[in-house]
């Protein structure tokens, strides 16, 4: 079971480290990372395996979003199925 963590905002130091630390804290395993600069914004997409997380999905989502907020970044944590069902037949 995978979650997509999308982090969007102005590029700065430590974004990946802090989000990854929050994931590790909740036992989520980062399987893939992709980052890109869109216009002047930084967009980092992480694929995290959440099958062994130590809390509910909602709590995990809130924790990652809180980390993002402390960095001044917008973070969306969404189950991978929404993207696969929308973009793949």
């Amino acid at each position: 079971m995978n979650a997509i963590i999308a982090v969007i905002g102005q590029d700065k130091q430590g974004i990946m480290a802090k989000i990854a630390a929050t994931c590790a804290e909740h036992n989520a395993n980062i399987a893939d990372i992709n980052q890109t600069i869109m216009q002047k914004y930084f967009a980092m997409i992480m694929l995290a395996d959440i099958s062994a997380i130590t809390c509910s999905f909602a709590d995990f989502s809130q924790a990652v979003q809180a980390t993002g907020k402390s960095l001044g970044m917008k973070v969306h944590v969404m189950h991978e199925d929404i993207f696969t069902s929308m973009h793949k037949i």
Binding site: I4, A6, I8, N34, M38, I45, M78, F83, M86, H87
Partner: peptide, 16 residues
Amino acid sequence: MTNTRDILETIGMIQE
């Protein structure tokens, strides 16, 4: 992994 552009498109649809 799902294409980054597709992911950002979905988020944009919901957010914007």
